[in-house]
Simulated assay, not measured.
Amino acid sequence: MRLGLVVYDGLGRTSGGYRYDRRIVAGLRDRGHEVTVVPIPRDGYGTNLLDNLSPEVAADLTALDVDVLLQDELCHPSLVRHNRRRDDDVPVVSIVHHLRCRESRSTWRNALVRAIERRYLETVDAFVYNSDPTRETVEGLVDPKPSVVAPPGGDHVDPGVTRERIRSRAREPGPLRVVFVGTLVERKGLHTLLRGLAALPADEWSLTVVGDPTVDREYVRRIDRLVSALSVERSVTFAGRLSDDALSSTLREGHLLAVPSNYEGFGIVYLEGMGFGLPALASAAGGAREVVTDGKTGRLVPPGEPRTVAEAVGSFATDRERLAEMGVAARDAYDAHPTWADAVDRVETFATGMRKIAGPFP
């Protein structure tokens, strides 16, 4: 089967959505399918809307000789007009990680994004969702279409942490070692985490921040000012982007993964942290509840509530037996979760079915 994938900037970025796309493409290629990646430069939302008038983008899409065209839904501002103007019978399948209209922005801007996003969703033939909550969110905007839910796996690295180590690590003296992993943008909630941690005694915690600081430089400057205003410089380490090996080492030595996002369509990072025996402090908004069981493998907290973050982190810091118990439960849940091979199975089967519906193909 010949497939195309349209995605901003190719597959080199480090966020969970890019990791998802990268793993699906690699899995499909391993099974003998031909996958052509069509990169579109990611600029601002308004600039990417102009891609709909771009002859270069139109030429790249027209040149594709594929049976099924996959599109990362986050590219929707660049594709809505191109999809409406297509005149072939190649099915277009949108991979939806989360909707941009669920991100934090001013009311009028979000109304505009919502309208454009809805128009894009109407132009595609089918969907691949990363979670049932993501599917429900999309079906709140447009009528249901053929779809498959293919949850991400977390098994691309071997955590190398035994349950005995998870228990002994939790009982080690000293501050609770909190790890934040995510692109440094407002949606990921680092500011909420910092405010929550600052409400706790300084000797109870330390924080390592792992993530790309180049995507939203103004937000990073806000975070720098917040760290200074809260006087927590000695407790916070900014590690920047890390290789898989370096990230694994950081998670292996941590106690708690904390990413209190405003919204997550799924939250691959929660699952990956659980593989290292780290309970997850996760967003109660969106798909994280499919990964994290509140009170058993982590805590689900409402977006934008530092006080709730402080209460959750404080309970882990002062009750290390509970931390150990939840760390082992997190690892058990990780082991029971579907793998990346399972996700590729679902996408492959679904895409094959879409090809047959649209056929015939050479």
Rank of each mutant, 00 (worst) to 15 (best):
G295W: 01
G295M: 03
K296H: 15
K296C: 15
G298P: 02
G298H: 00
G298C: 05
G298R: 01
R299F: 12
R299D: 10
R299V: 14
L300I: 02
L300E: 02
L300D: 00
L300N: 00
L300H: 03
V301M: 08
V301I: 13
P302D: 03
P302C: 03
P302F: 03
P303S: 05
P303F: 00
G304A: 08
G304N: 10
G304L: 05
G304C: 07
G304P: 07
G304W: 04
E305Y: 10
P306D: 06
P306I: 07
T308E: 15
V309L: 06
V309R: 01
V309M: 04
V309I: 11
V309N: 00
A310T: 13
A310C: 14
A310G: 11
E311Y: 11
E311W: 11
E311T: 15
E311M: 14
A312D: 00
A312C: 07
V313I: 13
V313E: 06
V313F: 08
V313D: 08
G314F: 10
G314V: 12
G314W: 10
S315F: 12
S315P: 11
S315N: 14
S315I: 13
F316D: 06
A317E: 13
A317M: 14
T318E: 13
T318N: 15
T318W: 12
D319M: 06
D319S: 08
D319C: 05
R320G: 08
E321P: 01
E321K: 02
R322W: 11
R322G: 11
R322E: 13
R322Y: 09
L323T: 06
A324I: 03
A324D: 02
E325Y: 00
E325C: 03
E325Q: 11
E325N: 07
M326S: 07
M326P: 03
M326Y: 04
G327Q: 05
G327D: 03
G327V: 01
G327R: 01
G327P: 06
V328I: 08
V328A: 02
A329K: 06
A329I: 06
A329C: 08
A330P: 09
A330F: 06
A330Q: 07
A330V: 09
A330T: 09
R331Q: 15
R331E: 14
R331D: 13
R331K: 14
D332V: 08
D332F: 02
D332M: 04
D332I: 01
A333F: 00
A333T: 07
A333G: 06
Y334S: 00
D335C: 12
A336M: 11
A336W: 10
H337E: 08
H337R: 12
H337K: 10
P338K: 02
T339R: 09
T339A: 05
T339V: 04
W340C: 04
W340L: 04
W340V: 04
W340R: 04
A341Q: 10
D342F: 09
A343T: 04
V344D: 06
D345Q: 14
D345V: 12
D345P: 12
D345S: 13
R346L: 12
R346N: 09
R346K: 13
R346C: 07
R346H: 10
E348P: 08
